[in-house]
Design a protein around this nucleic acid. Structure first.
Length: 259
DNA sequence: GTTCTTACA
DNA sequence: TGTAAGCA
């Protein structure tokens, strides 16, 4: 019987891969046809089918085409074991990355949901101790612009997932901070009860206006605020609207005045 | 009609 | 990795 071998498209169909990919494997030196016919067609036999199965399995398990070629040239079973372990480690790291990414998405969604269920924009909340990392300070009269951020030297790759805090310290300039873990934070927000006022605004005037409401709310409810007043830019709530920016005014409640 | 090579996004 | 052109 003539023609026990099959053409590239038959092999591709059989193995559920593209013709292109089979030629690619050849170019990379890991799969060659049984022979080339007179018309220059690549012809593949049973050995190539098994070989391609192995290649596809190794690719699925995360081995690069280059690693497959190198192992084919000079590979031991120990080496293959090592390659597979490395691959599993890489994949587990990727799973962890994806896990934390979905957790972050859920955190954003929860934050959105919680703002929508809150009856009042004002909340008294008990907070654990938390830490901020100073970024730089800015004069009260100066407006924040792109150049100032660029000139700070440090990059903030995770600017989008951290809430920027503007600390208004008594008499001093405004201090911009990012949320930090204890070890790299230089500002401690002590545990205690805080007054939180959520609002959204488009411009500076709005923010000041809301600050006045924040202070007058505290006064009306006989709350004595202490420590810096903090403006928190809720960066991921702002994801949900085109041109509003979501903020919180935040300050620690020292004590409640007796009437 | 199918495959081959080469080039390109 | 897919797509396309020009050939055999």
């Amino acid at each position: 019987m003539l023609n026990t071998e099959i053409t590239i498209s038959e092999l591709a169909h059989l193995m559920q891969v593209s013709v292109h990919q089979i030629r690619y494997f050849e170019e990379k030196g890991i799969l060659y046809p049984a022979y080339t016919a007179d018309n220059q067609y690549r012809m593949y036999g049973i050995d190539q089918i098994y070989r391609l199965s192995h290649i596809l399995l190794m690719r699925k398990m995360g081995l690069s085409v280059q690693a497959i070629r190198q192992w084919t040239n000079e590979g031991t079973s120990d080496r293959m074991e090592q390659l597979l372990r490395q691959s599993a480690t890489r994949i587990e790291a990727e799973m962890a990355r994806l896990r934390s990414l979905t957790e972050f998405i859920h955190k954003v969604l929860e934050e959105k949901a919680s703002t929508e269920t809150e009856a009042s924009a004002y909340q008294r909340v008990q907070r654990e101790v938390s830490y901020l990392s100073s970024w730089f300070t800015i004069d009260k009269e100066t407006k924040l612009d792109a150049r100032m951020l660029a000139q700070q030297g440090d990059t903030i790759p995770e600017l989008f997932k951290t809430n920027i805090h503007y600390l208004y310290e008594e008499g001093g300039p405004i201090r911009l901070c990012t949320e930090a873990r204890q070890e790299n934070g230089d500002i401690v927000l002590p545990e205690g009860e805080y007054l939180v006022y959520r609002f959204s605004a488009k411009g500076e005037e709005d923010i000041e206006h809301h600050y006045e409401r924040f202070e007058s709310y505290a006064e009306r409810h006989s709350l004595l605020l202490t420590g810096p007043r903090m403006l928190v830019e809720k960066s991921y709530l702002s994801l949900f609207s085109q041109d509003d920016i979501h903020y919180e005014w935040l300050a620690r409640i020292d004590r409640t005045l007796q009437l």
